[in-house]
């Protein structure tokens, strides 16, 4: 007889599972990046409080994004998260290829080290995960924007602007 016994658990739809996995990936990558940015900030503390404050600020915002993801914030959060993360990736690339006036004593591009590469890899995972979480019409726009930025970076490198 139907309805007797414990109710069977509702099967999880594949779309829900995918959403949950992408959300986990985004939350994990953004929180780990936030922690690594604290490390980066501490590394800069010796010579530039401004730079250190920047990285601590980034860490704080990323921790906020992580919390927003956990609470399933609005679509706008995803778009802002992608925008901010892409900006950080671009800043990373530019700082490794060009000498930025980051502080008074900066006289060459930053060194490409394991910490920086780890952070940027995590940020790329964040961008992908946030894009996947976005609604389809948002996602297309977001990814078109990311494509344009990527092409722009390559163009700047190929033309010698970034060198």
């Amino acid at each position: 007889m139907a309805g007797i016994g414990p109710a069977a658990a509702a099967p999880t739809a594949p779309a829900d599972r995918a959403e949950r996995n992408w959300r986990r990936a985004a939350t994990w990558s953004v929180n780990t990046t936030a922690a690594l940015h604290v490390v980066v900030g501490l590394d800069h503390l010796h010579h530039s409080t401004l730079l250190a404050a920047f990285f601590f600020g980034v860490a704080l915002v990323q921790a906020g994004l992580g919390e927003g993801l956990r609470r399933r914030g609005p679509q706008g959060t995803l778009a802002a998260g992608v925008g901010g993360t892409v900006a950080l990736v671009v800043l990373y690339v530019v700082s490794r290829l060009a000498t930025l006036p980051l502080h008074e004593f900066n006289d060459r591009p930053e060194a490409t080290d394991l910490l920086g590469m780890s952070v940027v890899t995590l940020e790329l995972i964040t961008v992908a995960a946030l894009a996947a979480l976005a609604a389809e019409r948002w996602r297309a726009r977001i990814l078109d924007g990311v494509l344009l930025v990527g092409l722009g970076v390559w163009a700047a490198w190929a033309t010698g602007i970034l060198s």
Partner: peptide
């Protein structure tokens, strides 16, 4: 995504 990823 790969355009930016490869550049980075």
């Amino acid at each position: 995504l790969s355009a930016l990823g490869a550049a980075a």
